[in-house]
Design a protein around this nucleic acid. Structure first.
Lengths: 83, 83
DNA sequence: CTTTATTTGTCCGTATGTATG
DNA sequence: ACATACATACGGACAAATAAA
């Protein structure tokens, strides 16, 4: 089971973990990150899972298709110079 | 493809379209309105199509014959006085 | 009679949206 | 943060009835 630190919102800590998995490629583009999967893995309420997903969506790391799921966004064209 | 508005159930919007076709005579009495036809035309799930049909049936605009289909109801005897 | 196609009936599962306590 | 409930929506599968070939 995941160990939460006190004094920091759980949804932030969950978002941190997922963010890392996205940025490291553990979760490739289009990978489904459902609320239920977060509920089960982290032992949290769906309410909390939704907050984590919302945060990542607002960061652009996830996009949500209503009634279908939330998925890892395609890589953004960052760093223009590097060729 | 049909354009759905957000903030309103799809099954309601589909029902609206069919209702208009019935009331305008585009779909005459006994015209078949099958779930599959709605699925294909509107690009929705059958689940959603069934909800639209159910709504129109409850309004009396359609009647369903099990395993045969849902058909446009005969015109209702409105306006009593007119003879 | 058999086969094929069509259509509704029913059930399961997954997932988000929304609201309440 | 949690728990619960319901609505909305999609996908798939199978059964049963009907009609037509």
């Amino acid at each position: 089971m995941f160990e939460f630190e006190p004094d920091r919102p759980r949804w932030q800590q969950v978002a941190d973990v997922i963010r890392e998995r996205i940025q490291s490629g553990t979760y490739p583009p289009k990978h489904l990150v459902s609320e239920l999967s977060l509920v089960q893995e982290f032992g949290i309420a769906r309410d909390t899972a939704r907050k984590a997903v919302r945060a990542l969506r607002e960061e652009g790391l996830l996009y949500t298709v209503p009634h279908m799921g939330s998925f890892v966004s395609p890589p953004s064209e960052a760093q223009p110079a590097a060729e």
